[in-house]
Each structure stands twice: as C-alpha cells, then as structure tokens.
Design a protein around this nucleic acid. Structure first.
Lengths: 225, 225
DNA sequence: ACCTGAACACCGTTCAAGT
DNA sequence: ACCTGAACACCGTTCAAGT
C-alpha cells in the first residue's frame, strides 16, 4: 500500500468520501477522477493512498467491514453474533449499494480482530476450535445471504424497504402469452404485509440454538442451563 | 430490450461468450469492445442484443440464474431445494468470478418459473403460501450466503478450493508489532483439513429439518412420517 | 523529493454516413 | 431499413516536467 499523503487529505477522508459516492450512485458510479473532483483535488493526488483502483476497492471493503462487524464488549458469544448479524443487515439495507463491495476477495485486516474476539468468546463457552470456526462461518453466512436475497427480491430502494416489490412487479409485467403462475398468485396477497424480518429472525434464532445445542465442546464443559 | 440481430450472432452466443470472459478475467475484465473483439465483430453490432452495458449485465445475471436454479422433475420440495442448493454452490465454487453478478437487482424472468415450481411443490406438501415463500427465501439465502463467505475466506482459486487459505495467509503476514491473535492460532491446526462442505451440509440439513418441522401447514394436513 | 498536468491507451455510447 | 465507422466524453494510469 502506498504511503499516506503528507497533504491535507487523510486516507480515512478519501475512503469515507468514496463510500458516500458508492452509496449514492452505486459501485459503477465510482471513478478515481470523479472522486478527486468531489474532493476538489487533482486526480493524481489520490494515488498517494492506493496503488490502483483495485486497491482502492479493497480498502473500501476493509472500511466497510469495520463498519459492519464491530466488537460489542460485555456480550456473550451468542449476544455478539446476534448483534453483529443485526448490524450487518441494518447497515446493508440502509445502504444497499454497498453490497457489491462484499464480493471482494481480500480478508480485511479488521477481520482478524473480529474473529479473534468471537473465537475467544466461544472457547470461553467451551467450544473446541473447529466448532467455533464453523459457528462463525455459519452466522456470517446467514447474515450475508439474507441481505443478498432480500436485496435481490425487493430492489435497492432504501427506506421503507419495498418488500417483495420486484417479484410483484415481475408477475404484473409478464408478457401476455406467458405461462400462468398460479402458485405464486396464491401467495400474492401475503406480499403486501410480508416481512423479511421474520425470515431473518427465524433463521438467526434456529441457527444460534442449533449451534449451541449440537456443536462439540471440550471435555468437562457443560452448556449453561 | 433491443430486437435480436438478424445477423449471424445469436443472443445466447453473445451471453455465453460474456460469461466465459467474466469467468476468465472477472467482471472488471468484461467490456463491450473486448467482447466484440473476442467474437470477431465490430463493437456496435452487439448493441442489437442490449441497450446498454447495464442491460447486458442484467441479461448475464438472468442467464446465470438459469444455470444455477434448474427444475428437477420428480423431486419432492425437500429434494428440489436441496438439489438447487448444491447446484448453486457447485457452480459458483467452480466459477467464482460469477459471484459479483449475483448482486444485480433485477428479478430474472426465469426466477418466476423456478418459484412457481417450488411453491407448487410446497403447497402439495401442505404448507400455506406464507410458509412456502419463507422457506424458499431461507434456503436461497443459505446457499448464497455460504458461497459468499466461502469465497471471502478462501479466495477465487477454483479447483482445488484453497480452504481458509486467505485467513492463513493473513495471519502469517501480519505486521510485526500487531496485536497477537491466540484464539485464531489455536484454531490454525484445523485449517489444513477444514472443509466448508461440513458447514454447508450442517446448515442445509438443519434448515430443511427446521422448516419441515416448524412451518405452518394448512388444516387437515399432516406431515408425512 | 514530492506533486501533478499532459499524454496514452483504453472505455461506453451517439450519431451520421454508408449500404 | 439496417449496419457500423468515426467521434465524443469519459476512464485508469504512466511519466516527465515542474517545484
């Protein structure tokens, strides 16, 4: 990574500005030149903070990760994982254009800190390392998958979330001769008051309960009642 | 959508070529001009198939969806959902560069057909519409989330998947003065023979079992033993 | 040494000139 | 009417000219 500029613009300021642009215009709307314009700086000055746009995107992912996964002190492993799940979902539903950043394949430095904290909590709860790693993967996966599907089916309109709007629109706008979809139409009345909150909660709780109950703990440890 | 070209190049051929490019070089490596070059056609001829690159990406997502979610005839609702989950994961681990396409926010036309089929199966199993929609969302979410996390932690190297390689590399390359991560290091020996298959299977089976057991069915219906 | 404007090799898309 | 080359307004990045 390039050295930080000595000039007036901190790396954090640049990254936060970039996140704002992505939030507003989508990932495709982010350009190095446009970002520089936004910041009132000549384009090349930004390269003090990254070597390439690709690296800028990695740094953005890192910054986003920091925002999605924060450590809640005094929380149990279940409390921490539940809180993080909700935080991820809340932030990403509020800023749907950040979702494409999640397909980056760098492990952000901040991730280690988060993992370390959760793993330690789980060891404290008696879980063996393998079980702990599995649990974290499963919870992370649940949260991100939920957001991805929710976004796919309801679009990017932020608040209020248009629940299943896209599916409704899709059914309504089918070409005239298209095959009928009676099963979907049976479910259509639900779409109005349908909420993804229920899916998310049900999934999260059964997952946490399942982990608590079924994952192996070290000898002598007993699950608290 | 633009009318199909009368020329020699079918829309399917264009989309398949584009998927190959994305698979090979990543989404960032796909350009209209480059694709035309690949196909030995002048760039503007491709616009017979889409109005803009944005629309091309939507069509690509649609084509990908068709590949990820196919209907397995003679399968029960559980069989269908399980088979689709595995198919999604298999395809996306084999072609990790396709993952960013999943962040598109159009509902592919093919999606309706898939939903219709699964919903009908679930009604046949006695589920009320609301429960059926919830179940499909949950299973989709599980599969996509699993792939996202798996990819995030192990990189895009296709076969053999480098399990938790990125996390290992991350720990190894920490700057010298960085805070120690004893909990992660305790888990490191597992990383060698760690497999995401187990996480995926455990999640999938508890999810399907949970749905089967807890979701409301219509009056008079009884879960088959 | 640092900073940055000019330049290069791209890109998506418009549009008018070709047939 | 269709097809498509040239042109336009961008883009990421190199590099040498400035300080």
């Amino acid at each position: 990574m390039a050295r930080a500029a000595r000039g007036s613009l901190s790396r954090e300021a640049v990254l936060d500005a970039a996140l704002i642009v992505v939030d507003r215009e989508g990932l495709a709307g982010l350009s190095v030149r446009g970002l520089a314009r936004e910041l009132g700086r000549p384009p090349m000055t930004l390269y003090a903070h990254f070597r390439s746009k690709e690296e800028l995107l990695d740094l953005l992912f890192e910054r986003l990760f920091r925002r999605l996964f924060s450590i809640h002190h005094h929380a149990s492993w279940r409390g921490q994982l539940e809180e993080s799940s909700r935080q991820v979902r809340r932030e990403l539903l509020e800023h749907p254009n950040w979702v494409p950043l999640l397909t980056r394949v760098t492990v952000p430095g901040k991730a280690l800190e988060f993992y370390e904290h959760v793993l330690a909590l789980m060891y404290g709860g008696g879980f063996v390392p393998e079980a702990a790693v599995l649990a974290v993967s499963a919870v992370l996966s649940h949260a991100l998958g939920a957001v991805l599907v929710e976004r796919m089916l309801s679009g990017t309109t932020p608040i209020p979330v248009q629940r299943l709007e896209l599916v409704k629109a899709m059914v309504a706008s089918r070409p005239h001769g298209a095959r009928p979809v009676p099963a979907i139409e049976d479910a259509m009345p639900e779409f109005g008051h349908w909420s993804f909150d229920a899916v998310f909660d049900l999934g999260l709780h059964s997952l946490l309960a399942g982990l608590d109950e079924s994952l192996p703990r070290s000898v002598g440890h007993r699950r608290p009642a």
